[in-house]
Each structure stands twice: as structure tokens, then as C-alpha cells.
Computed example of a mutant assay.
Amino acid sequence: MRRRGPALEPLLLSDEERATLTRWARRASSAQALALRARIVLACDGPDVPSIVGVARELGITADTVRKWRRRFLAERLDGLVDEPRPGRPPTIAVDEIEAVVVATLEEIPKNATHWSRSSMAARSGLSKSTVGRIWRKFQLKPHLVGTFKLSTDPLFIEKVHDVIGLYFDPPEGAVVLSVDEKSQIQALDRSQPVLPMMPGMPERRTHDYVRNGLTTLFAAFDTSSGKVITSLHRRHRAAEFKKFLVKIDREVPDGLDIHLICDNYGTHKTPAIRAWLAQHPRFHMHFTPTGSSWINQVERWFGFLTDQMIRRGAHKNVQALERDIRAWIKNWNEDPKPFTWTKTADEILDSLARFCRRISGAGH
């Protein structure tokens, strides 16, 4: 027969205690340990005396933890949930000092710099540099880092996002979707002295200075379904070269398939000559990304692979050598193409941007 323990004393909360515990459990600034203890007591509230095991299972903790804080609350009420004093030297930094460091970091700028360093904040606050560092880590403050952002001002931003993302998730039947752009001004750079190869315990080394040996422009159309890329290299970057690239796309895409091109708003994509050519080739359909939103165009990610794997650390004595290496890299890519998996819907993107705008509203005054 199952052994039964002594009957538990009911834990009944006053309205004031219940409100305080609810605030502790939900407030973002509460310590996680205190928030858990508040949830334990709230779960044990009531004249029916909920089961210790049931509360533990509900909160995903051990029964001993529930029993400990239930007993502590019954003995000392709200004061019993606060950590007991620990042995050792008590903390010497007051809460007000910590708050002052956080507020100054977020709202002030040092007189002689654009951002705080540990040394400058230590001089301002009177605390040690290590203490400032610990405070910053605790509150995830990183004054030495800076990110970038740009919000589109396109009046048709929402419509264009739905249009482009719709092509990624639900491409038309009997058609190909090509993400198109130009990577202009690719420089043929050569180091002023020979590159020293990597050795055990030593990375590849190269001179910091270089010699410019000319420019080229890569036109690319990335097939969003297969990952294959149609490309063309030109020394100039005009509507005339873009028209030649459209002719190449028309020649390489099988007849009978419509062609949906995702492009940015660069002027060469919209000249009268280009519009006239498109009117004569009705299987081409242009879809423009929102102004200032290159992140939505998949070919930009492909350009990133090309830059990381070949261009950035390449050394070329002339443009011909650069173009030869680019063509070889593209040929290798197309032998084993890899399409990208787009995961965010248009609504998710718009919701994320809306949350970001709410966070930064009024930040710059």
C-alpha cells in the first residue's frame, strides 16, 4: 500500500501577495531564481492544496525544490523567497553605482571620444576597469561594437516585398525565376611583393599595399530553384551591357518558359532602350525589389560566396587573369549548384521590421 505523508498545510495568498508574486514572475528585470520561486508559490496557492509532485511536473523542476520554497514561504511569507545572506565579504558596489554606469553607457558620450571604453568609464564612475567590464557583460553592453542598418523609404515597399517573396515561395508554373544584379568595379589587385604561403604555425602573409590593374563588372542571373547561374563579364556598366546580358539570358533559357527577373532599381534596368527590348520579348517579366533592400535579392548572397572564396584574397596582374579566375569559379559552381532556402514569409519580414521600428523610434531624436 502506498505510504502517505502528513497532510500539507494550505497555502493561501492575500491579494497583495498574489499581485507582488505575479509581478516578480513576469517582470523582465527579476532574477531568474526569484521568478521561479514566485511561480512555485503561485502554483501552490489555493485551499485545495495542489500536489507537490504535480506542481513540480508543471514547472519542470524537482519536488524537493517545490517543497523547500513552499515551506519557506509559509514560514516567512514574501521575505522568505529572497536569497539568504551568503558567507564571505559582502558586495562593495551599490546598486546605484551599477545603475549609473548602465545609464551613462546608454545615454552619454565621453568628451574626447565617440564611445566609452573601460578606461574612460572607470575614470568617470570611480570604479575599476574590471568592474566596469563585469557590469557591461551582465547587461550585454558593447560600446566598442557598432552595427549598420538602413530602412527603405520606398512608398511601394510592402507591395514589392509581397511580390518578390511570393516568387520565392510560389514560383509560377512554366517559368523560371532569376535573381539578377551586377557586381560592378571588381578590381584586379596584385600585391606589391609576392605572397608568402601558409606554413605550420604561420598563416599566409601578404603585403598591406597593392597595385590596381583594372576593373571588370560581373552580370549574374541566379536561378532560385536550381541554383545555376547565367553570367556575363563586361568592362563597362551601362544599359547597353545590361541589354546584352538580357539577350544572353533569352538565348540560354529554353523556349516556352516565361522568365521572371528580380532586379534592383538601378537606372540601367529602366532606360527607354531596355523597356523597348522588354516590350519585344513578352516572356520577360520584371520584378523590382524595394529601394535600399538588396538583402531581398538572392543573387547578392551568391556574390558573397564569390567574394569570400575567390575575389577577396585573389592576386591578379591584369583584368584578363581576374576574369579567367571568375569564369573558372562560376564553371565549378554550376557543376554542383546549390539553391538557397528562403524561410521567412513576407508577413514575417514586415512584422520583424515593424518591431525594429518600434524599438528605434525616437532613438536618434
Rank of each mutant, 00 (worst) to 15 (best):
R26C: 13
N112F: 04
N112V: 06
E17Q: 15
W136T: 02
V53P: 09
I61V: 13
A100Y: 05
R71I: 01
I135C: 07
A56M: 05
P10S: 09
L8N: 00
S120Q: 07
I93T: 11
V95P: 10
N112M: 03
S117N: 04
S119L: 12
A19K: 12
P110G: 06
T62Q: 05
S14M: 04
A100G: 09
P6H: 12
R67F: 11
A63Y: 10
D64W: 15
P91D: 04
A75I: 11
I135W: 04
T20S: 04
T20D: 05
V102D: 08
G46P: 14
A123I: 07
P10N: 06
V66S: 00
L11A: 10
E108M: 09
L34T: 13
R77P: 05
K129F: 03
T105E: 02
D48N: 12
D64P: 05
G54Q: 02
R37V: 04
D15E: 15
D79Q: 06
W69H: 08
K111L: 11
R27K: 12
S29P: 08
G88P: 09
L78P: 00
V102G: 00
A25T: 02
D79I: 02
R39G: 03
I98E: 15
D48F: 00
V95D: 14
E9M: 12
P50A: 07
I52H: 10
P6G: 11
A75E: 15
R118Q: 15
S14I: 01
N112W: 02
L42F: 06
A25C: 07
P110K: 02
A31I: 08
D83E: 13
E97D: 10
E99I: 10
L34I: 13
A43W: 00
T20F: 09
V95R: 11
R57D: 12
P10R: 09
L106V: 05
A7W: 00
D64T: 15
L59E: 01
D15Y: 06
T92M: 07
E84M: 05
D48E: 15
A35R: 13
L78C: 03
R71L: 13
R71S: 15
T20L: 10
V132L: 03
S29H: 10
K68P: 08
R77G: 09
R70F: 11
I98Q: 13
I98Y: 04
S120I: 07
R124G: 01
D15R: 15
E58H: 15
S117L: 06
L42V: 09
L36I: 00
V95Q: 11
A31E: 13
E108V: 04
P87Q: 04
L13H: 01
V95S: 12
N112Q: 07
V102F: 10
T131E: 08
A56H: 04
R72C: 05
W136K: 00
M121C: 02
I52V: 15
T131M: 10
L78F: 09
G60S: 05
T92L: 09
L11D: 01
